[in-house]
Design a protein around this nucleic acid. Structure first.
Lengths: 123, 123
DNA sequence: TATGTATTTAAGCAAATACTTAAATACATA
DNA sequence: TATGTATTTAAGTATTTGCTTAAATACATA
């Protein structure tokens, strides 16, 4: 990529561009964390999993496979991604693993779920 | 996939699973729309573009390329995705196209931006 | 009209994603 | 200990994504 070939129009406000760059620099880590959360939630299957965990408090992979009509390994691999991102916790009861939302991380998802309900009502 | 091989444990609450399936069925379209928005926002580059448009009101592809230190075509292709999802509008002034957030769709992004600020403060 | 700038579009490619099936692991219980 | 269930992990593959470079389009102006 040739960075030299950039915007040269007379109206370009270089002070504004500089301010934008600084604003982003100050928030580097926050953006990465939020991107991670959103890319997890930005999948049809995973958003449903998160929604269901919020609705039912806890569910096992097998329940989720039944509800979403998907194979257990497919569900398990989605769960791993969500878990690696620190969004859910697990609890074992015998052979069964129950997954639930990590309360420290739910805030953004709650507002996403609210928006989903809102879309339904206004659609 | 063999759907017959599903959860057969004694504790499986079939009424609960049925309720979950019905809850999802009622919200099919809302989930798809939200997944679309989140998958758009779940990219480092696009989340920054949305944040910057919210911050500065409007910017052109060339400005964004400068700020994000990326090629203009790369930016343009991200913009197209965001535009196809109905999240941003454009206004032409001579040769320059200015993009801005579509106010009808900002609500969820505003809460995402608030969470980003929050992460920064608590981190 | 010819030239230049801003932007988009297209083609190509490497990396990431999301399934599949098969095998491994963990626990329960006869 | 042997068998069965719940789950995860691994390997393979088709699809999607996000860049690159080159070409096309749109507008401005000499």
């Amino acid at each position: 990529m040739k960075l030299e070939i950039t915007c040269t129009r007379a109206e370009a406000n270089h002070k504004q561009l500089q301010n934008c760059m600084e604003a982003l620099d100050n928030m580097e880590g926050s953006f990465q964390k939020m991107t991670k959360l959103l890319s997890i939630a930005g999948s049809d299957v995973r958003l449903r999993i998160l929604y269901l965990l919020n609705l039912e408090n806890e569910l096992c992979p097998c329940d989720l496979a039944d509800i979403l009509k998907m194979s257990v390994p497919a569900i398990s691999q989605h769960i791993r991604k969500i878990k690696d991102a620190g969004i859910i916790n697990s609890r074992r009861d015998g052979q069964t693993l129950y997954y639930s939302l990590n309360k420290d991380e739910t805030e953004i998802f709650i507002s996403i779920f609210k928006s989903i309900e809102l879309i339904r009502k206004t659609a």
